[in-house]
Write a protein that binds this DNA or RNA. Structure first.
Lengths: 248, 248
DNA sequence: AAGTGGTCTAGACCACAAA
DNA sequence: TTGTGGTCTAGACCACTTG
């Protein structure tokens, strides 16, 4: 059997080759040496100059494209993009996990629990036909014994029939659902509102205090599972999103 | 020259093989046939059963891992994850582009423009030493002639000296910066506040109205470029984030 | 110790789009 | 027409981690 002993990769360990190449190319771009619009050498050329297989170059360039640093098109080649548009990864954590991570005690207090046939309003919010059985929940997330956020939720009982028997006394509905129901799509809407009398009472804040709201709709395939609105006093919660121009 | 003519790939066009495999595996997971914790067959086994090279399987599994549908570890194999934590891609668009896309006229009105040495407050906000020259801007984004959002911005003149000469009469500072300064890191904070008298006046809303705020800090490498806070009346703006459990 | 994923190679054919 | 990226193969060695 013929073996090619000439260049035994000599690559030892640690950081993969494609990663090194990725970093080298990224540096050219971030430093401005390769400005927006600049066309990179072709994969074949880069493979020659870096002394590696074309697939390895492809992996590095693919990573740059994933980071939106470059655009790749057949025949046109690989070109440097304009600085990235405002898009970033927002992490909306599970409230309970978030508080526990901060070392604060957490409790969910159920305030109201009703099974009913969906009113027109319910139907609009949850996106199901009027009359569909739904579970309407209101509850308070407490942190360190004090009110932290108010949650209003509708659950489609056609999608989650087992919720009909659940009391949600100890566990929050969010956790309960997350552990049971796989969802395939979610939509968040983030907004602000002035606390009305009821909200103010539960959250122990003054009426009209600005609150941050997060609404979430979840689907399993085409079926709506739940709608939830979480209301945070403005001084108790901020959403933070960090973003880097290509990871490190 | 020896050529292997036995199984000419027969693969013709359209969708790549690794994509087909990705979809097939994803279906197993999303449908629940492979529940959380389930261990997938090894790459070798999958390569045999799908009749392709191991690298092709690797690419499909890598895509599943990118989507956080599975976790891959050496020796431990590839296992199905719990339903994904609440994380989604939030797109924060350029205000002007956003409005133009909606077919609404847009204008930026400069309200205040001052060059000064950073006060202690400025220094804290912008993260530069006190005394650093900064440009402080206040401006109003107008949509269809009506106030849409209020913007308060600090620019580090050490990082962007050419801003000292710019009047920002026609163009918004965000656009101007985006076109000139490549940034490498950004941080967003989203919150809510009650409009004070000044904010209420500029936005033509009642005092105490809840507003959504978006603060953004940007860096170029280690250097701070700008800090901006944009304030939207609660009824005029919502952030929307959509998320799917794996694309398509 | 052994099985798994991570990476890499040196080719190959193809689709696409620009010249 | 031709150069480019997109994909694929059939191997290979290695690092990691669990049994």
């Amino acid at each position: 059997m013929i073996r090619d002993d000439s260049p035994p990769p000599a690559r030892s360990n640690a950081v993969p080759r494609y990663r090194e190449i990725y970093e080298a190319l990224r540096q050219k771009i971030v430093s401005g040496e390769w400005p927006a619009g600049y066309r990179l050498p072709s994969e074949h050329e880069l493979a020659r100059s870096f002394g590696c297989a074309r697939m390895t170059i492809g992996k590095a360039l693919g990573a740059l494209a994933d980071q939106r640093l470059v655009t790749r098109r057949r025949r046109a080649g690989t070109t440097v993009n304009m600085p990235r548009p405002q898009e970033s990864v927002l992490e909306i954590h599970d409230i309970e996990a978030e508080l526990l991570a901060a070392g604060v005690s957490y409790a969910y207090q159920s305030l109201e629990r009703r099974v009913r046939r969906a009113s027109t309003a319910d139907a609009n919010i949850l996106g199901v036909p009027s009359g569909t059985p739904v579970l309407a929940l209101t509850g308070l997330h407490r942190a360190g014994g004090r009110p932290h956020a108010l949650e209003e939720r509708l659950i489609n009982l056609h999608a989650v029939p087992e919720a009909r028997a659940e009391r949600f006394s100890g566990i929050s509905p969010g956790r309960w659902l997350l552990q049971r129901i796989p969802w395939t799509e979610a939509e968040h809407q983030i907004g602000a509102l002035n606390a009305d009398a009821a909200i103010a009472r539960w959250l122990a804040i003054r009426r009209n205090t600005a609150c941050l709201t997060i609404e979430r709709n979840t689907w399993r395939d085409e079926q709506r599972i739940t709608h939830v609105r979480v209301i945070y006093p403005c001084d108790q919660h901020r959403l933070v999103a960090r973003f880097r121009y290509g990871p490190t």
